[in-house]
Amino acid sequence: MISETSEHSSAPSTEKFQKVIFEKFTKDGFQKDVNDRVDRYFESNNIPKTATRGMVFKTIWILVGWVATYTLIISGLVNPVVMFFLALAHGFFSAMIGLNIAHDAIHGAYTKNQKLNERLGLTFNFMGANDYVWKISHNVVHHTYTNIPEHDGDIDQPPILRLQPNQDLWWIHRFQHIYAYFLYSLATFSWVFVKDYKKFFQHQLGGHYRKTFPRKEIFRLFFYKALYYTIFLVVPLVVIDLAWYWIVFGFVASHLIEGFTVAVIFMLAHIIEGTSFPEPKEDGKIGMPWADLQMHTTANFAIKNKLVNYLFGGLNFQIEHHLFPKICHVHYPKIAEIVKETAKDHDLPYVEHETFFGAVASHTRFLKQFGTTPKGVLIPRVVNV
């Protein structure tokens, strides 16, 4: 439900970060209306909001593919060329685990059984990432402060990438539409070796402030990182009869596929033509309820492409995901029309790009514009589908 997410609509204020204040949603507003309409859809059709049998089957074959590719790589049964392509396939299966299984589970959307959600969420750690950091940086920070400069960590990238209007403009940014996609490929590699450690021990994550770091989570961070390094680096180096640098090359290549897949899917949902970057006023007020913000900052793409929807965890229905993160992604195509109609009734934007490659082209144009637009100047909200 939207109201469950919007509980995090403000963070403890600090000297550096201003508290964001959303307007309260009203009985006749979009947030209440879309909640009620979607609830009625599930109730009238007697459908649970969690995973279906089809989702369970998808989970099984993704995990089987992930285990099988790894097993074949270390088995010694295939030649180095086949081993390399298996490494690429393993990277893609890893991305699918993150986008389909772990993402829903960590949101609590896979099943009503929270312990099972937690166990399925552990698959995120076997991608080399950290589920605790993700819960904060994604579930709380990104979903609450979507596209709000200095509050949404997803648009606060290394300064060589300029993804929001308040960022300083460098000369090299004029080329970011060219080099950005290579940097995206490094996304999960960064998670594994740098980003998770850095974010874990930061008190301020976007618009969210933490005073302490749970000891249990500190242990889990280092335990699962060590386990990941052992399984995916140490074991291959020991058992595969190849020079060490070929093993490392395969590991890196796997992450390039994984990182590119994950990063591009998320970028197409927010850093794209038609989305906005709202800023709070001096008193911290954003001037709209939380759900209205999501309609201004989030976009769908390729919603008629069943393959894109199936492989990438329904995240091409990003609007529906942001409004209803606790609903399993297999239901998004059915509730999308409800959300779209409700947005229209409340005179709110519903940004969508018709095809996957059309969305990629739109994102590329957006990067190119941000690479030359002076600091503080907003890009017009033009949607090219």
Rank of each mutant, 00 (worst) to 15 (best):
M1N: 10
T5S: 12
T5H: 02
S6R: 13
E15R: 11
K16A: 15
Q18I: 12
D28K: 12
G29N: 06
N45K: 12
P48M: 04
K49P: 03
F57G: 06
W61D: 11
G65T: 09
A68F: 03
Y70E: 09
T71S: 15
V78S: 05
P80C: 09
V81K: 06
V81T: 13
F92H: 12
S94L: 11
A102Q: 05
D104M: 08
H107T: 01
Q114Y: 06
L122H: 09
M127R: 03
H138T: 11
V141M: 11
H142P: 06
H142K: 07
H142D: 01
H143G: 07
T144H: 08
E150W: 07
L163M: 14
Q164G: 08
N166W: 07
W170R: 14
I178Q: 10
Y179A: 07
F189A: 05
F189N: 07
S190Y: 08
W191D: 05
W191I: 00
K199I: 14
F201D: 08
H203Q: 15
Q204R: 15
H208W: 12
R210D: 12
K211E: 15
L221K: 01
F223Q: 08
A226Q: 06
L227Y: 01
L227D: 02
Y228R: 09
Y229C: 04
L233I: 15
L233E: 04
V235P: 02
P236R: 10
L237Q: 07
I240T: 05
D241T: 14
W244C: 05
V248A: 12
I257F: 14
F260P: 04
I265V: 15
L268D: 00
A269Y: 00
T275A: 04
T275K: 00
T275C: 13
E279K: 12
K285C: 10
M288A: 01
T297V: 13
T297H: 03
A299R: 06
I303S: 06
N305Q: 04
L311A: 07
H321V: 07
P325V: 00
H329E: 08
I335D: 05
A336I: 06
A343G: 10
D347N: 15
L348D: 04
G358P: 03
A359S: 01
A361K: 12
A361D: 08
S362G: 11
R365Y: 09
K375C: 07
G376A: 07
V377L: 05
N384Y: 01
